[in-house]
Amino acid sequence: MSSNTARQAFTRFTRRVPITRTEHLAGDIYRHHIHFPEIAEGAQPGQFVEVKVSNDFDPLLPRPFSVNQVDRENGVFTILYEALGQFTKEIAGMSAGEELQILGPLGRPYPLGSDECDEIVLVAGGLGIASFYHAAWTLREAGDERPVRLFYGARNRHSVVQLEDYEALGVSVEVVTDDGSLGEKALVTTPLTRYLQTQPRRPALYVCGPTPMMKAVSEIAQIERVKCYLSLETYMACGIGTCVGCAIKLRTGDGADDFVYGRACVEGPVIEAERLVW
């Protein structure tokens, strides 16, 4: 019963930390650099942090954001988002020196090991791009030589971000837009399907974007019999698995009743597409 026996290395961290830089990347898209060495060091690709502005009661709950990029040397990580809701509009106005309350790193990362695939295929819809830079960077940092491709669908050329960063990592990028202002005028499933028809050797898809897009990509993956991982976004409260508010339906068998409610924050945010019941 002694607290000494229970003492363990804490694996999650929370405190108020400063923004070191705010970038306005395009349109309503912003990126904050945040000083939090334990998260810069420990965050795995696909993991997220919970962000809260202050102790105020409005908004009351923190919001989840993917870790976009890490700079271990300076103990900084970034979050990338579009300021559309009340919360993101509020933090978009914050600049270097202002503080955020951060909790992380959280959630199940992308499984990127060589046992998974020979080609890493990132499929982004809009701000679903946010988590992928950290994934591509981590592979290169580890000296992983496998090809990395990015299929990136966006509204228009003004809402496309970080392209040069992916190119610098040697990721082959194909961009499509809803209005054809950059790349082909198409949904991201069009170039993805074309690529899969070339019969690449053992690819795995890592997908993040709006629900209809993720559903469409999952169906393609099922038809083409390729591995497919989805990074899900839900409303969350605690972010660490206690409240069970971010329930997602996970298949446990073939029957209609063979499912359990998992937690997007713990069993996810990254889930095998075939496990998810839509």
């Binding site: 409260a237 409240c243 971010c246 329930a247």
Partner: peptide, 23 residues
Amino acid sequence: RRGNPPQRIYETAAGMLNSIGLQ
């Protein structure tokens, strides 16, 4: 107990609604 289907939580002014269903 399996609990209730999502959506299970929603933030309101200075509070939150939950319907977890005792999972």
